[in-house]
Amino acid sequence: MLKINGLSKYFQSGEVLTKAIDGISMSVGSGEFVAITGASGAGKSTLLNVLGLLENFNEGSYEINGTEVSKMGDRQKAQVRNENIGFIFQSFNLLPYLSVYENIELPLKIRGINKSERKKSVEQLLEKFGLANRAKHLPSQLSGGQQQRVSIARALSCAPKLILADEPTGNLNSEMANEVFSMFEEINREGTTILVVTHDEGLASRAHKTIQIGDGKVMQVS
């Protein structure tokens, strides 16, 4: 599904050139559950952002579903993000002026799905994640765990082939973190590829594959 070869990402600050990703090559097959681990500043999040088409890379090649990313324009990338990728963030990043229902509905709206189909999909997700009674609530009226469930539901709303999660349990207690990973396992069992960045070795071990990153390079794959 994802194939990267010699991928590098630099940051220039004055005369100092920092290599956040330094020639990483790897591939992720369809239906895999991959955990990316590593110390702070190792390049985990940068790698995830590049894979999620949120950030450009400087060198190497990146193919998603057989299409070279460097040849895509902004609109095509936006379409790929909308249709193929679901994002889950540590800070949830729910839009504060939209209700739970509307936050989950947003990617469907962007995709141009009609209202009745959107309603059907959102209601199914609300039911699945136990949020049906919170549909009209604003994010500020929810607990951290509930917000992350909304965030996961939103990521799944367009039925993407790939979920990218950046420290999704960073703001949750261990019980909630376990719950979130259980959800990931369930989603993965339904065929969705998951790439999750985490510090937590215990949670990472629940993935099919763990990639350890250090100094922008792949240190170990297990």
């Binding site: 999040s45 940068t46 952002n49 949120l54 950030e55 994002f87 963030f89 540590q90 800070s91 949830f92 990043n93 729910l94 839009l95 504060p96 994010p139 500020s140 917000q147 950046d166």
Partner: peptide
């Protein structure tokens, strides 16, 4: 906008 700057900071909700 550089999305990664704001998504990482969690400046939304």
């Amino acid at each position: 906008v550089k999305p990664v700057v704001y998504l990482k900071q969690g400046g939304v909700a």
